[in-house]
């Protein structure tokens, strides 16, 4: 934890913060953990581990600040530092590798997707979910944080320890990759993906 230790909470205060500000986020935490690990037991361990750390370092949490973002940051760091090492599945793309390859904030927005908004709207939850799960962990992470959990760029920058410009560009790339996945579904479902034709 890099946060400055502000002051010590009493046992009662600790319990109040833990129950009142930390525990209400357990659903979001578990979903994030599950989408990172794809395994129920691993997700449970990761969430438990995160809450243990949150309790141990509770004095570095400033009451009234964004507890959810604070918890997500701990979970993300636990995942990278500990979980990933003992993970059975070697991830295809590593956080570090992605940093090296994609650290540039310059993005070419020119890329054309012939995916139509209409065909996206018709897709099923499972198709969306599978498309998201198919993305490399860095890209999956920013979409989960932004679209499923509603974090702002600034909050994401803190959770991921990256500049806001990198949040924006990574999110843009992630959504483009997601569009490629969805395009595959749209085509297999026989939706019209050709922009030239009108309905």
């Amino acid at each position: 934890m890099s946060e400055v230790q502000r002051r010590k909470y009493s046992q009662e205060e600790k319990t109040a913060i833990f129950d009142g500000e930390f525990m209400p986020h357990i659903d979001s935490m578990y979903n994030f953990a599950f989408r990172l690990t794809f395994d129920e037991d691993d997700a449970k361990d990761l969430v438990q581990d995160t809450y243990m750390k949150a309790f141990r370092f509770i004095n570095s949490f400033e009451q009234g600040t964004n507890a959810k973002a604070w918890l997500f940051r701990i979970l993300k760091n636990s995942f990278i530092n500990e979980y990933r090492k003992k993970s059975k599945q070697p991830a295809k793309v590593d956080y570090q590798e992605v940093e090296t390859f994609y650290n540039s904030d310059d993005v070419d927005y020119q890329s054309t997707t012939d995916l139509r908004a209409e065909s996206v709207k018709d897709m099923l939850g499972d198709e969306i979910s599978n498309a998201l799960n198919a993305l490399a962990v860095d890209f999956r992470t920013v979409i989960i944080l932004a679209d499923l959990e509603g974090f702002t760029y600034e909050e994401m920058a803190k959770i991921l320890d990256i500049p806001i410009g990198t949040v924006r560009s990574r999110l843009h790339r992630a959504r483009n990759l997601l569009k490629d996945q969805l395009k595959g579904y749209a085509q297999s479902m026989g939706y019209n993906t050709d922009e030239e034709e009108e309905d």
Partner: peptide
Amino acid sequence: LEQAIRDVLKTKCTKQPVPNELADSIRQMI
């Protein structure tokens, strides 16, 4: 298109149900 993508992610992405005993086991560990 970008709006449609955000909407389906927000509204359709299936949530993994949280195991019942998870909250209790965390409280126990604490």
